[in-house]
């Protein structure tokens, strides 16, 4: 586990770096607050409605499809490393798995989930 110590160190440094630079720039930068400056940017027009509205369900659909395919790659990863050792058995197993997945892929395609208008 000792090998992972430098990774933790780099993550800590990367997290502290912005804080450090922001504190430095706090000493240098001007600050002239005004109501217009702190309002949300909308091309110069005063915002009339709240920004946090309902968003298109398309984005939700993409997230769900991503989840399915990402879990698939998680399954594929250990198989890919042990490919030679698992030999024909692994190849056939993965062939069946990928065939089932392709079936589902064809289904979402035929339902129009992949077509973006």
């Amino acid at each position: 586990m000792r090998g992972y110590a430098p990774i933790l160190l780099l993550v800590l440094i990367a997290a502290l770096l912005p804080v450090l630079v922001w504190s430095l720039s706090r000493l240098l930068r001007p600050r002239f607050p005004s109501a217009a400056k702190y309002s949300a940017y909308e091309c110069g027009i005063t915002a009339t409605t709240e920004a946090r509205e309902k968003f298109s369900v398309r984005y939700y659909l993409v997230a769900v499809m991503f989840l399915v395919f990402d879990v698939e790659t998680v399954f594929l990863m250990p198989w890919a490393i042990q490919m030679k050792e698992l030999a024909a058995f692994g190849l056939i197993e993965m062939g069946i798995f990928l065939f089932l997945l392709l079936f589902g892929y064809g289904y979402i395609w035929s339902k129009g989930a992949l077509t973006w208008e």
Partner: peptide, 28 residues
Amino acid sequence: ITKEDIIPAKADRAVFTLAPILSVVAAF
């Protein structure tokens, strides 16, 4: 560095500050 730092009045200040840190941590 010397530019004025603006956090919009309606923004969620803590998350607004955390977001660039997350990006930098992931990239570095």
